[in-house]
Design a binder for these strands. Structure first.
Lengths: 203, 203
DNA sequence: AGGTTCGCTCAACGCCTGTAGAGTCAGTCG
DNA sequence: CGACTGACTCTACAGGCGTTGAGCGAACCT
């Protein structure tokens, strides 16, 4: 468990280790309080390190944020909805720290806003390419936005009905409903059974 | 157009007017940059007023934010989805300034987070009371979260497919899809209290 | 008309921030 | 073993912040 306990012998390795410790601390603080409200001193304290060392390692607070909030974006064009659920994580797990940091600041830090815009637009493009019919872009954007909203409501606002959710409920209600926007059926006045959970779609 | 141009004669009226000017400036700044990144001086400059006057009027920056970001919450139990679309505004209009201020800071300012939690939980409660069937809470939360996501994606991140949207497209795609999560048609019986006191979950 | 009120500005305070540069001491190496 | 390197800490600074209290002058009251 204790990854910190094992202290490397060589100097370079120790340096790399503290750099990593600083990065993790930064991700946590940024993810919890956002870019503005997070102080370099708070990061340093959490990493058990002097504030100036944080700067020596990463140049500036903003540079550190840029690294700490960087999503690793792989573009799997297939299995889009699954990947979406994975990346924006409506699942039961915690959010990965870098995602948390980025989302937390996306409304207040211009650089985070930009990164999020790019990321989401990318997802929308991928999705809309994968589906067919009229308003493909709109329906893709609908799905992506909803997953974003779900993520925020669940992981950042702690909406009751979403925090107590089970895998089974996701399968029964959330997933079919989300994928519904990707189908063409939306133009109908109201699709009869797609969202009705009376009879769960059997896997 | 010039609502500011007409200067009231009485002293009290003038004071009230500048108070209003400060409030509007605060809403704009908070809505654009968030609580942390907004300075009292910036608000004062925008209101063409000395920074200290802002404090004299509203006590502190945080008090001012609390007032500037206060949503007027009427609880109309009927026509829930319509009201939801109205309040969280997936429509074509701009967001009302106080909504914008609150949403902008909801991920970084604890007080805003709390206000948003209360607001959304309230909406979820109202919705889930109005619909029937299993997982009513979950389906209500799904809808509310999605509207939140749509609002953010549209008004704060500017997702292409959502900014260029037309009323017709909303009617055709967004609304039916959103209401789909609610199960039955929204215009269906809302006061099901008498008919449905409690419903045991049927697996 | 003259004294009082009070909305507003001015100047300044103490605090906290990000960051720079000098100093320190353990690890490294010939 | 002694000199050096470099990862880290210490000290400090300049700038911006929210907020305060004194002062000014126009509006107000009698």
């Amino acid at each position: 468990m204790d990854a910190d306990a094992t202290e490397p012998r060589t100097r370079a390795a120790r340096r790399a280790a503290t750099a990593q410790r600083i990065l993790k601390a930064a991700q946590f603080e940024f993810g919890e309080r956002g870019l503005d409200a997070t102080t370099v001193r708070a990061i340093a304290t959490r990493a058990r390190v002097d504030p100036s060392l944080v700067i020596q390692h990463y140049g500036s607070k903003n540079d550190l944020f840029a690294i700490a909030a960087q999503l690793h974006r792989e573009s799997t064009d297939e299995d889009v909805i699954e990947h979406l659920l994975d990346v924006l994580d409506v699942r039961l797990n915690e959010l990965p720290p870098e995602t948390r940091a980025l989302v937390r600041s996306m409304l207040t830090a211009p650089e985070a806003t930009l990164a999020m815009q790019e990321f989401l637009n990318e997802r929308v493009k991928g999705l809309s390419r994968a589906i067919e019919g009229v308003d493909a872009d709109l329906r893709a954007a609908l799905t992506v936005s909803s997953v974003l909203g779900l993520t925020i409501a669940r992981h950042f606002l702690g909406l009751h009905a979403l925090t107590e959710i089970s895998e089974e409920q996701i399968a029964r209600t959330v997933r079919p409903w989300l994928t519904a926007a990707l189908g063409e059926d939306t133009t109908a006045p109201r699709s009869a059974d797609s969202a009705r959970p009376e009879q769960p779609p059997t896997p």
